[in-house]
């Protein structure tokens, strides 16, 4: 009763979810968790770069602007449209506000 909720066409109970999650995790661990552990040695953690020098740590991090590059490239038309809307000029903010108000007026008076 504390955790059960009715969601319109079904229900949700986080405790059941957690319980099944734990059971599945135990199963998975017991089947696949008993592999032989690799021995630690300093050579293994050294990056193998085909003979190239190791790059600077700062440059190794994938920059935030480059993640999802493909997505933004594919949606570039849409993003160009959005960029045109977000001009950053205060007059345009007010124009959007008033435009929505006028459209709603027209829709509501005629509805």
């Amino acid at each position: 009763m504390w955790t059960y909720i009715f969601t319109g066409s079904g229900f949700w109970n986080p405790i059941w979810w957690l319980a099944s999650f734990v059971i599945v995790a135990i199963f998975v661990y017991s089947f696949f968790g008993s592999e032989v552990k690799a021995k630690y040695s300093p050579d293994k953690v050294k990056p193998f770069l085909s003979g190239w020098d190791e790059v600077n740590k700062d440059a190794m991090q994938v920059k935030a602007s480059n993640i999802y590059w493909g997505f933004t490239k594919a949606m570039s038309g849409y993003y160009r449209f959005l960029d045109r809307c977000h001009t950053g000029i205060i007059n345009d903010y007010v124009v959007w506000f008033m435009a929505v108000m006028v459209i709603t007026f027209i829709a509501f008076i005629t509805a």
């Binding site: 960029d83 977000h86 001009t87 950053g88 000029i89 205060i90 007059n91």
Partner: peptide, 10 residues
């Protein structure tokens, strides 16, 4: 001029 005060956009 508001057209130049637009550091925040996008």
């Amino acid at each position: 001029d508001t057209r130049e005060i637009r550091r925040l956009r996008g």
